[in-house]
Amino acid sequence: MAFRIFIHAFRMVFGNFGAALRISTPMIVMSLLGAFILMPDETSSTGTPAEQFSNFFTGPLLMWLLAYLVATLWVAVAWHRYCLREEYPGAIVPAFHLDRILGYFGWSILIMLVAILVSLVAGTIIGGLAAITQSAALAGLLWFGWFGVLLWFIQRLSLVLPASAINEGKSLRQSWEATRPISGTILAVALMFALFSALVGQAALPLFGVSLVLGGVINGIAQWISTMLGLSILTTIYGICIEGRTIE
């Protein structure tokens, strides 16, 4: 079933490619703008490391980061609404639901804080076991295993996000309980998505040595695919667990 969910999410994006492009317009525009802001110049490559760091985090860059966050939340809400409620985008950009975007952001922060808390506990346990056994191999294996568990944990809590996007009130507890019947499937999907994103993200690295522009373009495409695919996986799991939908 995990593979079916992954393929279904892939088809959601590329089977509705025109709508996906229109809905993700804010994110695409901000990515293109970021390519100019992040372009290295002579002043940013000189001086001490501290000076280079200071030059990098300039006012325009911080403003762009904020704008990119808003664009990503805008796209996420619009894509969930399109897939679950068939709310079609406008000719250029999707509808801007400020209340849903703020709700989505609030739930995202809460999930992140919960994930950080459990990660601190897990890190303490793993660090203690590594200190007792004096085994770097064991520590590496435990951290790799925890990464998979963390993805699974976050995914099981994250049904509150599409629920918020379509204004259906759900709690973290409800999300956790709703995903219980397919918890193993969710772990498999999370690992498949992580592996896919890592492989796609590596595609642009060799191209940066040839051309910064070409590398930036390919990197932007890779990020777009990973983002839209991740949103589609979450939407698919919501449809299965909350709305009782089936997939082919």
Score class of each variant (00 low, 15 high):
2 A>D: 14
2 A>E: 13
3 F>A: 15
4 R>Q: 13
6 F>A: 06
6 F>P: 09
8 H>P: 11
10 F>V: 11
15 G>M: 07
15 G>C: 10
19 A>C: 01
19 A>M: 12
21 L>T: 10
23 I>K: 00
27 M>N: 04
27 M>S: 13
30 M>R: 04
33 L>N: 03
33 L>E: 10
34 G>P: 06
35 A>R: 05
36 F>H: 08
38 L>W: 08
49 P>A: 00
52 Q>C: 10
52 Q>P: 09
53 F>S: 15
53 F>I: 15
54 S>E: 14
54 S>C: 12
57 F>D: 01
59 G>M: 01
61 L>V: 08
68 Y>S: 11
68 Y>V: 10
68 Y>K: 08
69 L>Y: 02
72 T>G: 12
74 W>D: 09
75 V>G: 07
75 V>E: 00
76 A>D: 01
76 A>M: 04
78 A>M: 05
80 H>M: 03
81 R>A: 03
83 C>H: 13
83 C>P: 14
84 L>P: 02
85 R>V: 11
87 E>N: 10
92 I>G: 00
92 I>H: 04
93 V>K: 09
94 P>N: 02
95 A>D: 14
98 L>H: 12
98 L>R: 12
98 L>A: 15
99 D>M: 13
100 R>E: 14
101 I>P: 14
101 I>A: 09
104 Y>T: 06
105 F>S: 11
106 G>L: 13
109 I>W: 11
110 L>Q: 12
112 M>P: 04
113 L>A: 13
116 I>D: 05
117 L>E: 02
118 V>R: 06
129 L>K: 07
140 G>K: 05
140 G>P: 06
144 F>S: 00
144 F>G: 00
144 F>E: 05
146 W>K: 02
146 W>T: 03
147 F>G: 08
149 V>D: 06
150 L>H: 09
150 L>T: 07
154 I>C: 00
156 R>L: 07
161 L>M: 04
165 A>I: 04
167 N>Y: 01
167 N>A: 08
172 L>H: 08
174 Q>G: 11
174 Q>L: 05
175 S>Q: 01
176 W>P: 07
176 W>I: 05
178 A>H: 05
179 T>L: 03
181 P>F: 13
183 S>M: 09
186 I>P: 00
187 L>S: 07
187 L>R: 04
190 A>F: 12
192 M>A: 09
192 M>G: 12
193 F>M: 14
193 F>I: 11
193 F>A: 13
194 A>S: 11
196 F>D: 05
197 S>L: 01
197 S>P: 11
200 V>F: 04
206 P>A: 04
207 L>I: 03
209 G>Q: 12
211 S>L: 07
212 L>F: 15
218 I>F: 08
219 N>Y: 13
219 N>D: 15
220 G>A: 05
221 I>N: 03
224 W>I: 01
228 M>H: 09
232 S>K: 09
232 S>R: 09
233 I>A: 12
233 I>C: 01
235 T>G: 03
236 T>C: 01
236 T>Y: 00
237 I>G: 02
239 G>N: 09
241 C>T: 13
242 I>N: 09
245 R>C: 04
247 I>D: 02
248 E>C: 02
